[in-house]
Computed example of a mutant assay.
Amino acid sequence: MDRILLDGVDIGALPKVSLHDHLDGGLRPQTIIEIADEIGLELPAKDADALGDWFAESADSGSLVDYLKTFDVTTAVMQTEGALVRIAREFVLDLADDGVVHGEIRWAPEQHLTRGLSLDAAVEAVQAGLDEGVALVRSRGRRIQVGQLVSAMRHLDRWTEIAELAIRHRDRGVVGFDIAGPEDGFPPSRHSEAFDLLSRAHMPVTVHAGEAAGIDSIRDALFAGRTLRLGHGVRIAEDITVDDRGDDLLVELGATAEWVRSRQIPLELSPSSNLQTGAIAAFGDQLDDHPFDLLYQLGFRVTVNTDNRLQSDTSLTNELALLAETFEYDLDDLEQLQVNAARSTFLPVEERDDLVEHITDVFDELR
């Protein structure tokens, strides 16, 4: 990975927290090629570099629906125990190479059953791969911890079954629950019994909201889904009015935006992905149009994420570098963004405090 410097410090060496990173969006192109060859799957490209380019170009559509079509390829090679173990192990190694010290990795087990795996066997295979990856990283003297976020696909209506799956594995690597997939038309209130179950079991929840749909989607995630974090949540900015009066800006927050800010509900923002999917279309189509800085300056708990490293051809290092260049952030800003993420993990409070301390210590050492 190329070194990217900010104030003389390699951003890649900074400790990072990854809250929104999809397992099926972080495969190595060469791994896809090798597994596809084993199972006889035809790919749009046979060279790793060309295949990586195909994913990035196909995903850069301005539509979440088109963006999601690229996952037909990745999920196709993630249908056996061996494939899931390998992909999860490599995922952790790639996070570590990006400086990630804590990662919460989301994926939807129900999409990985076409070759005979059960839901439980799929979760166990991914956990085995994550454990192998963590052991390898730590054997090299580096720090990392990871957990699974088990996602239910919004349009497949197995929410309660997947919620029960997450609860069954909560002491074996699963740290939370998510719903993913087509957002518009599939709100959490569609299956409120799943969220009732999760709430009674004290299972943390993060919900994709405020990406392909707007404020109503965010409200439903907050109040029907009882979400502790907003997956993307970028369209909360549509509930903010900014009146430019020359030297002064008059900012007014709507009721939902005020609720999210006042309660410091984390926003899992993914700048490059938000551009690709058209999530910020109301504001523009360039990174400097992204409301990231507006939300940061207003005191929302913003975090930086990759969403899907393969489709967006990115890393946390790259996302931080893009933000620093676009909004003139310095190391203090990048530290605050990582502290925000650390405080937003689904770890127990003592472990969150330890993670924050580690991040601030390393930033101090690297300055």
Rank of each mutant, 00 (worst) to 15 (best):
L93E: 12
V101R: 00
D47F: 01
A96C: 02
V205F: 04
I167V: 15
A96L: 02
M78S: 06
P266Y: 02
A279H: 10
E90H: 01
D49M: 10
L316G: 06
V126L: 04
L331Q: 09
R115M: 14
S151G: 09
D178K: 06
L355K: 02
S58D: 10
D288A: 10
T277A: 08
S63Q: 11
E38M: 03
I144V: 07
L334N: 05
D293S: 08
R138L: 11
M78G: 01
I359H: 01
A237I: 11
G173H: 04
H232R: 12
E124F: 03
L267M: 04
L337G: 02
L165K: 07
V150M: 08
A125V: 01
M153C: 10
D361E: 15
M1Q: 12
V73I: 15
L250K: 13
Y296V: 03
G129D: 01
S192G: 14
L197E: 02
R138F: 11
F177I: 09
L222Y: 01
A96G: 01
G12D: 03
A282F: 11
A341D: 04
A255S: 15
L156Y: 14
L347G: 07
E258R: 15
D171C: 03
D49Q: 13
D313W: 09
P291S: 07
E319Q: 13
F346G: 09
R235H: 09
A221C: 11
E81W: 11
G181M: 04
L51R: 05
V260A: 01
V205T: 10
F346P: 07
D248M: 10
G116M: 10
G214F: 11
G278R: 13
G40R: 00
L149K: 00
S315L: 02
V92R: 01
L310R: 00
L249I: 10
D332Y: 08
L323R: 13
W107K: 08
R261V: 00
G231M: 07
A96H: 03
I167S: 02
L337N: 03
T314V: 04
E268V: 02
V101W: 02
G147H: 05
A45D: 08
Q111A: 08
S199D: 13
G254W: 09
G147L: 02
P187I: 03
L198S: 06
H169G: 06
K46Y: 10
S270I: 00
F71L: 01
A221V: 07
L19T: 00
P44T: 08
G176D: 06
V302E: 08
L249R: 14
Q311W: 05
T277S: 11
E132N: 12
D171H: 13
L5W: 09
R263D: 05
V175M: 12
R154K: 09
I144Y: 00
R140E: 14
A45I: 03
E104G: 06
L355H: 04
D243N: 15
H358E: 14
V126H: 05
K46F: 02
L316P: 00
D307L: 04
L136D: 14
E238I: 06
I240T: 12
P182H: 09
T70V: 15
D247W: 12
S139K: 14
V17C: 01
